[in-house]
Design a protein around this nucleic acid. Structure first.
Length: 370
RNA sequence: GGGAGGGUAGCGAAGUGGUUAAACGCGGCAGACUGUAAAUCUGUUCCCUCAGGGUUCGAUGGUUCAAAUCCGUCCCCUCCCA
């Protein structure tokens, strides 16, 4: 197996897990947050900075890299890591989410998905086998099953049909997988809000046997309460000796709630996108740095943060960078936001080991606004 | 001195008798953003006690039921010719 999960401790207060994820590119403490670098770049940051603000495991996206620059160019570099010169660990998403997010220009068939290129309009086709083979070439340590991520509120019959297809695609993907010894293929549990469908999907995927399991189809517009309910039900369905990955989740509160429910891995665009749009994530909540109130604010972005941005620059300066559309602003907030989540996860891990995650959660929300 | 064109909300710029507090862009002020088609999108932007009311379109005096829009006078700007 390419990836092995070593369970070390369960928080007595919450049931949250502390463990170590062993991968071909290193071992990582969990729970872990993984920054997203869709186009083989965590937007605005360079590799040495990514190391500073992450735990060394990041994402890239099959769909986008397949289209641009194409598999051949990446293969010529020996894979995504050779291409971007990222020397940490890597996970690639399969493109399943893009089937959902580009839904107005796709046709889902049993054999795969017909897309229209979102820029050129060219007709493209991606099968579960293609998605795995592309990921085999991209060369990530962890690769994902090609799933369908339907809208949360899809009607039951469609959701059932979709889940069945996702299960069949998962099996086909595993059969097509060429490097199971160096790349761990994770299955993805779908089913929307329907617990029976979630259970069915989880059982079938466990029967196929994957080295890790993801929960998909969440953080797609449903309420937080709905998401937590699904987690409450679904996490216990997953094996204890395998990593559990909640896809697409990354607000500070959701990370804490997810960990408390037994999740080990997260990824999210949230910190980097918010940063580029001018919002910092801090221990006190969101700071919309463009707001006039920060024009003459001599304080740091987050008075509890020790990252180089918070220990160097004033809010006033950061606001100035955004108001004058200077690139440095995007970089600095991106850096801080990721650092903040990295630090948050480290605190969470420590709290789990000390059996005090519930206390930590209470303390965190005490000062965290909204 | 002669000729031509202009002065509209913070800026630029439409509008040339009524449905105009006045298009649109920029700027300003807010909001959204969760497996990244996103350095994007949305709202708002004369004043107030804001489902209503009050003052506007260089100034001033008229015409009209009604004017940013028509007429008179004045002020200012740009360009061309001397």
């Amino acid at each position: 197996m390419a990836v092995r999960y070593e369970h070390i401790h369960t928080c007595a207060q919450t049931g949250a897990r502390y463990g170590i994820l062993h991968t071909p590119s290193g071992s990582f403490e969990t729970p872990i947050f993984m920054p997203v670098g869709t186009q083989a770049t965590v937007k605005t940051l360079e590799n040495d900075e990514i190391h500073e603000v992450s735990d060394g495991l990041i994402l890239a996206n099959t769909y986008h890299l397949w289209l641009e620059p194409g598999v051949d160019i990446i293969a010529a570099h020996g894979g995504v890591k050779g291409f971007s010169k990222w020397d940490g660990a890597l996970l690639t998403d399969s493109g399943g989410f893009q089937v959902f997010s580009l839904s107005d220009i796709r046709k889902i068939k049993e054999d795969g998905v017909e897309f229209r290129h979102h820029k050129s309009g060219a007709k493209l086709f991606l099968s579960p086998e293609d998605a795995i083979h592309i990921q085999n070439t991209l060369g990530a340590d962890i690769i994902m099953s090609f799933d369908e991520c339907p809208p949360f509120n899809s009607d039951y019959d469609y959701m059932k049909q979709s889940v069945e297809r996702t299960i069949r695609w998962a099996k086909r993907g595993k059969d097509a997988h060429r490097h199971p010894e160096t790349q761990a293929l994770f299955g993805i549990v779908q089913g929307g809000p329907h617990i029976d469908l979630r259970r069915h999907c989880a059982e079938e995927l466990k029967a196929i046997d994957f080295p890790g399991y993801a929960i998909g189809g969440l953080s797609v517009g449903e309420t937080k309460g709905e998401m937590y309910q699904v987690l409450d039900e679904v996490v216990p369905m997953l094996p204890d000796d395998k990593p559990r990955y909640l896809m697409g989740v990354g607000t500070p509160d959701d990370l804490i709630e997810g960990v408390s429910r037994g999740i080990d891995m997260f990824d999210c665009v949230y910190p980097t996108r918010m940063a580029r749009h001018g919002t910092a994530v801090t221990s006190h909540g969101k700071v919309v740095i463009k707001n006039k109130t920060y024009a003459d604010d001599m304080g740091p972005l987050d008075d509890r943060c020790d990252c180089k941005v918070c220990t160097t620059y004033t809010r006033s300066y950061l606001r100035h960078l955004f108001k004058s559309e200077e690139y440095l602003g995007l970089r600095l907030i991106s850096y801080h936001n990721l650092y903040f989540l990295k630090n948050l996860m480290a605190e969470i891990r420590q709290a789990i080991q000390q059996d005090r995650l519930a206390d930590f959660r209470a303390e965190f929300f005490e000062r965290y606004d909204k």
